[in-house]
Amino acid sequence: MSQLSPQPAGTSLPTSADVARLAGVSRATVSYVLNNNTTVRISDSTRRRVREAAADLGYVPHAAARSLRAGHSRTVLLPAGQAPAGALYQRFLTQLELGLRRLDYTVVRYGGVGQDADEAAMTWAELRPVAVVSPDDLALTPYGIGVLTRSGARAVITLGSQPVDGAHALVVDQREVGAHAVRHLLARGRRSIGVVVPQEPGHALIARPRLAGALRAVEESDADAGVRALPLRYQEDSAQDLASRWRTLGLDAVFAYDDEYAMLLTRALQDAGLVIPGDTAVIGAGDLMLGRLLRPRLSSVAMELTCEQRPAEMIDRLVQNPGGPPERHHLLRPAVVARESS
């Protein structure tokens, strides 16, 4: 693609009429091509000529004008949460964004740092999105959902552990991760189980439900077992301090929140003279490759975010057919991968 020439001051912006003249087609054809309209038959060579003309002129369709023609915007807002997102969430959001772009939506990632949920919703509403996918740590409220729908959002979707009244929900229930890990340890005969609770900011949204799931797994079992929360910072001295007290805690197993904390604690326990899994079984979550290189190899809860319908297609369906009852789709599918550490 050739470089654009510098635009002289006062020169008007290129228009679809300019693109049409350069490509030798009608303005309607330019609109069909650049808005990815597939209902009208246009040859590949014509589509290519229109796109090349638009690129040469530096022309892009006007989003507001397109919204007026469609009766709604094509903007989907993906607000950025304030807590650090893990690789699983990032991969999911990237796939969602790619899917929405293929469906001709404009995807905007937007931050809400320093705002509460209702303030954030009012800020989002100013952009007039046709759909919003809200992260768990912003705790969208029914009031905020009302603000968004009155501003033109046809679909408001929460992505997190709990649905919110009035919104569709992509449910990621982290309790199941903790429950799977502890059920595995109970099945291996472990009865005094520690659960690591990271002390770094931003981890509580995942750590709390994972601990709750671990407690639930023990309550639902017939085993005479117990769970103890273990605060831990992601630092060697914190892990060493916990390992030095391990024998006095009387624990024979630990669910270490995720694989990174599991590897940190495993090394500290081994340095303190404990044998894994003989003295203490260890299981993480996330099934990282590094955990498989550890000795003994780390057991883990593998996780996948899946949906019966592709999330981008689901959002498109909700936009095209607004007003239905809230939908609930459970995304998280955990599975224990048992290795030598447990």
Rank of each mutant, 00 (worst) to 15 (best):
R295T: 15
Y105S: 02
A70I: 08
R328N: 13
D271R: 15
L251Y: 02
P334K: 11
T306N: 09
A131K: 05
G324N: 07
D18E: 09
Y234I: 13
R295H: 13
A204Y: 13
S16L: 15
L13F: 09
R154K: 14
A256Q: 06
G286Y: 03
R210N: 01
G202F: 07
A256G: 05
V76C: 06
L251G: 01
P322C: 10
L332Y: 05
E313V: 15
A335N: 12
G291Y: 03
L293R: 10
A272M: 02
E308L: 13
S342G: 15
I193G: 02
I42D: 03
T149D: 07
R49M: 11
A207W: 04
R295S: 15
S151K: 07
A243Y: 02
R154D: 04
R128G: 07
L298G: 03
R150I: 10
V164T: 07
P8A: 11
R310G: 15
I145S: 00
P79C: 09
E119R: 09
L290S: 15
L138E: 09
E313Q: 14
R228Q: 14
P326F: 11
G284N: 04
L251H: 00
D104A: 13
L318Q: 08
Q115A: 11
A312I: 07
W124A: 05
A243M: 09
R210K: 13
S31I: 06
G166E: 12
L68A: 12
Q320G: 14
D137Q: 11
R216V: 14
P129D: 10
A217V: 13
R175D: 06
S16F: 05
T38C: 11
D271Y: 09
V182I: 14
A229F: 11
E327R: 14
A167H: 02
M303C: 10
H184M: 09
A181F: 01
S238T: 00
A20T: 07
G291P: 01
A125Q: 03
A17P: 02
S151N: 14
D116K: 06
S238Q: 03
R247T: 07
S43N: 11
G99E: 08
V171Y: 02
H184I: 01
Q199E: 10
N37V: 13
P163V: 06
A80W: 14
S45L: 11
